[in-house]
């Protein structure tokens, strides 16, 4: 069965909340019911029917075409199925996601994959700040699942991450993996200053170094660890290049000694 397709009619004149458009929420609904769903975030009403051309199909596979950076909260708390977005999206794509697959064939705004619990989020271009990170006041960021960003990521990627895996293939902004509690962050290109800032536990891999490591990370020498082979095999299906980058011996820094100090940053020996 073909996917359910939503094609944006024109650029929206307000920010939209797309969180009702989830496979498990649309399952069993008729086209008329779906077109009546409200997506507005201002006092001006805006329904799915007003904004999108709907082509019915299997609600387990939703396709959003002609996307726009005002489309916020796509895949919010999704549990299963698949959403593919052709183009850019706004803030909080995949926030609190629990399962399924969300693919953004463009760039995502801030808080993509924020506090995600499970499933897989793939962003083919760039991600904004706070990738996988918590909102202000939340104590824990990403808690499971996997995020892959093919382009660059903004500042504080993987902030307060607790579990799960994030791979960024492009350059990454400052404070990557800040306040990490655990989990795995793999950055293939150069990271901004102070990666792992105040991290307690967890693993950060810097494939091409960073613009300044905090002096509270302690050099523990170059190692070819069995654990890196396991990690390599695990991330290879997400990013073949990330898998390959973990095969070489890596220099291990322990930190952040300003806090618990049980985290680690691995840096490629070529950088």
């Amino acid at each position: 069965m073909s996917p359910l397709v939503l094609t944006l009619r024109q650029a929206p004149d307000q920010r939209l909340d797309l969180s009702p458009l989830l496979p498990h929420l649309l399952a069993g609904r008729t086209a008329a019911e779906i077109e009546k769903l409200a997506l507005q975030t201002t006092r001006t009403p805006a329904t799915v029917g007003d904004l999108f051309r709907l082509r019915m199909g299997d609600a387990a596979r939703i396709r959003i075409e002609g996307a726009h950076e005002r489309l916020d909260r796509i895949g919010h708390a999704m549990t299963d199925g698949e959403i593919v977005v052709e183009g850019d999206v706004g803030a909080q794509a995949g926030r609190l996601m629990r399962g399924g697959s969300l693919v953004i064939r463009g760039s995502a705004g801030p808080w993509a994959g924020s506090a995600m619990v499970g499933g897989r989020l793939e962003i083919l271009r760039d991600a904004g700040d706070h990738l996988g990170g918590p909102f202000a006041g939340e104590t824990v960021g990403m808690r499971g699942g996997a995020i892959v960003v093919r382009g660059r990521a903004g500042s504080r990627a993987a902030d307060r991450m607790r579990r799960g895996t994030i791979v960024v293939e492009g350059p990454c902004g400052p404070y990557a993996g800040s306040r990490m509690i655990a989990g795995t962050l793999v950055l293939l290109r150069r990271a901004g200053p102070l990666p792992g800032y105040l991290m307690k536990r967890g693993t950060i891999v810097l494939g091409a170094g960073c613009d300044g490591l905090s002096p509270t990370f302690i050099d523990c020498g170059v190692h070819a660890l069995v654990a890196m082979r396991l990690l390599s095999d695990f991330v290879a299906p997400l990013s073949r290049r990330a898998g390959a980058s973990l095969r070489a011996p890596l220099r291990r820094y322990a930190g952040d000694m300003a806090v618990l100090g049980k985290g680690e940053i691995f840096v490629g020996t070529g950088s």
């Binding site: 660890l225 069995v226 396991l230 990690l231 049980k262």
Partner: peptide, 24 residues
């Protein structure tokens, strides 16, 4: 106290520092 847990998907591993590296 130097042991590290690593969860990869559904599997969980322990990494214990030993004199030739790590016991996974």
């Amino acid at each position: 106290g130097w042991q590290i847990a690593k969860r990869l998907g559904s599997k969980r591993y322990w990494r214990l520092p030993v004199m030739d590296g790590e016991f996974v």
